[in-house]
């Protein structure tokens, strides 16, 4: 049975490497002391409570939520029809369109932020918030298209034709037959997009202005100035939030099928 134990050891070490740091972060955030340390100087929940009272965290959290929710919704509004077109039509320039829509995955985010700052915000007078919104939408769009596309490809197009022959219009066939059958995929795309947008850093690096900062950027600048455990506490809370979202999504949706 040695191979079984070797196998357990390997998995154990890998998981310790991947998950262990989070456990440390959770405990480091529970420190009663004023400086980040591990093991923590006594236990308290004061830093977990404090992060809710820091004004800049409140504002940046709100901005990040706004971007993640509305950026992803916009991406779905653009992406669901595009995915539908890709899966059901033989569109002219189809390959070009696919490449264009997928491009934001390959272009490093930091460059996107810089380009939008230089050519949209400065010369055209776009607000930073608008630029952030556009950048996050474009960034989430490829994921939205990919996830929705794979659910569409699993759905036979026969079904739409059957609906049309039973009297549906094309739009009717989409809303009555396609949408109910891909709603799991759309929801999964929303969750994936939300998480991607919320955690996004490089795009937002240059796109910040007075009072306009996403939460991860705010954390980065906070940790440059202060060395207290609040960032650890906040990180732990964010990790916890992600875990809850993913767990719920997996439970009700079989999320991992779609990713």
């Amino acid at each position: 049975m040695t191979s079984k134990w070797t196998s357990r050891l390997i998995i154990g070490l890998t998981l310790t490497f991947l998950i262990g740091p989070f456990l440390i972060i959770i405990l480091a955030g529970m420190s009663a002391g004023d400086f980040l340390a591990f093991p923590p100087d006594g236990l308290s929940l004061k830093w977990y409570i404090k992060v809710f009272t820091v004004e800049s965290f409140q504002k940046s959290f709100a901005l990040s939520m706004f971007l993640a929710v509305f950026g992803t919704l916009t991406a779905l509004v653009l992406g669901v029809p595009a995915a539908y077109a890709i899966s059901r039509y033989d569109i002219p320039f189809g390959e070009t369109i696919k490449t264009v829509v997928a491009a934001p995955i390959i272009v490093p985010g930091i460059i996107v932020g810089l380009a939008l700052l230089r050519y949209l915000v400065i010369p055209l007078g776009f607000t930073v918030t608008l630029a952030l919104f556009l950048a996050h939408t474009a960034l989430v769009l490829p994921y939205a298209v990919r996830v929705v596309l794979s659910s569409l490809n699993n759905l036979e197009s026969d079904m739409e034709e059957a609906a049309v022959l039973l009297g549906c219009s094309r739009v009717g066939a989409f809303t009555r037959v396609v949408l109910p059958n891909i709603q799991g995929g759309v929801l999964a795309a929303f969750i994936l997009g939300f998480v991607t947008s919320f955690n996004q850093v490089p795009v937002s690096l240059f796109l910040s202005g007075p009072g306009v900062r996403t939460l991860p950027i705010d954390m980065l600048s906070y940790m440059e100035i202060t060395f207290d455990p609040s960032v650890a506490a906040l990180s732990a809370l964010l990790a916890f939030l992600s875990v809850v979202i993913v767990f719920v999504a997996e439970k009700f949706l079989g999320f991992s099928r779609y990713v």
Binding site: D158, M159, L166, R176, V177, P180
Partner: peptide
């Protein structure tokens, strides 16, 4: 196609998976 009054039984049957047998028949 939706105004021709023609029925088609697909090789794959093309039933609507989100609807019951009753609602499948009631669809049209």
């Amino acid at each position: 196609a939706n105004k021709r009054g023609i029925g088609l039984v697909f090789q794959s049957y093309a039933l609507f998976p989100h609807l019951s047998a009753f609602e499948n028949v009631a669809f049209g």
